[in-house]
């Protein structure tokens, strides 16, 4: 599964994208898994209210299932316009 990071999430983790093998069933499970890895992930995911998630390029929720999902993206609230 490809995981993409944008804006300050990318900066905190220090990567724009990575491929992970995971058996996480929901986005929340994946977040828990990532947070347990290293301090930089813990720092990026410390406040979930400041984060948004997209599954295969559609906005989604942290309790959404990951079955069949190929691309997960984490980023702060968007500031277009």
């Amino acid at each position: 599964m490809d995981i993409l990071y944008f804006a300050w999430v990318r900066e905190r983790i220090g990567l724009p994208r990575e491929t992970v093998k995971t058996s996480a069933e929901t986005v929340m499970d994946l977040v828990t898994e990532l947070r347990g890895r290293e301090q930089r992930y813990e720092a990026a995911f410390a406040d979930l209210s400041a984060l948004r998630v997209a599954l295969d390029q559609d906005l989604s929720d942290f309790d959404a299932p990951l079955a069949g999902v190929r691309e997960v993206a984490f980023f702060p609230p968007m500031t277009g316009g």
Binding site: A7, A73, P77, M78, G80
Partner: peptide, 19 residues
């Protein structure tokens, strides 16, 4: 498009950068 299109802005001055 302000809050549902995936864009993020960062402001850079001589001394700092802020999302």
């Amino acid at each position: 498009l302000k809050s549902r299109a995936p864009f993020w802005k960062k402001e850079l001055s001589a001394t700092q950068s802020t999302w």
